[in-house]
Amino acid sequence: MAAAPPALDDATRDLLERAARLEKHAVGRLVSLVEQESAESRSRRAALFRYLAAHPDRHPDAARIVGVTGTPGTGKSSLIGRVCLRLLEREPDFRIAVVAIDPSSPVTGGALLGDRVRTQFPVGEPRIFFRSQASRGDLGGVGRRTFAVTRLLRHLFDLVLIETVGIGQSEIDVTRLADLTMLVLQPLAGDHVQFMKAGIMEVPDVFVVNKCDEEHLARRSLAELASALEFAQVGVRSPRIFQTSAVSGLGVEEVATFLADQARVRPGPGVRRAQEAFFLRKAVAEAYGRFGTDEVERLFPGGTLPGPEANALEEIEDRILASIRSRIR
């Protein structure tokens, strides 16, 4: 049986305290820690999350996680920039983190992360934090490391925006870690046809038609989107649709208001645990395939994990991995 879980070491606790005061480098270091894949960082990470779960008074798990997705060129980054600036302006205590995900090269493992070019945030403003993340082998970009980062940032910010690129797997996966997903489209780009084919029109909770710099274009585009949605029979819930322009500022206020309201909504009971279960299962599936997921099912029938007060995610993961390894032997 595993030894008693190690306590949070002083260095990590110091980082956490500084991060809670929104010192940028401390937040940056902690994000790296939860992203790293070494054995040492794994045990520090486990201790960190256990500590966070044990101190909800000091580090409340309070953020809303919003996925922002869409094909390249729809102006997501510029739009996020405008909306965040507006939020910071009108909500004096509001804290926002933005995580932008770009692919890594499968050959070299290297990555070029260029989202900072387009998202221009104020310098020296602690209430906004921007981080680029490389997909590092996670299919579709959004994976366990993204999830781990949201698990951390949830305790430090009020709103966490996850920006992903592309259409397909990443759009589906981002909904698994986000409480709410926004799909950004550009007028008449035919994106919705593509999305419809891919079955993705059913996914987003919010549609944003960006680059509505010209009125007639925007009107036509909106009509097309509405009919596409009707066609996809998303009628069960009626998604919000915004029209925006990062150039003229159209719609920025509305999206900001919407997000500010959203940030006050707390996740329902069991939501976070279900998200954890999904990414745990996904990680096990990537490493051990069907054999691994069968083992998860055997240990936790129906994929239901015990509540967070009972076990930290890392301990559950350890238990699953130990069990898998013993069976492989």
Binding site: V27, G110, L113, R116, R131
Partner: peptide, 24 residues
Amino acid sequence: GFEVIYGGIRMSVAEIVQSAVEED
């Protein structure tokens, strides 16, 4: 094999340093 965070041109020193700090 590096992860490169590229911020484009004409950045202030404060912006560049902030990027380095946030990106660890």
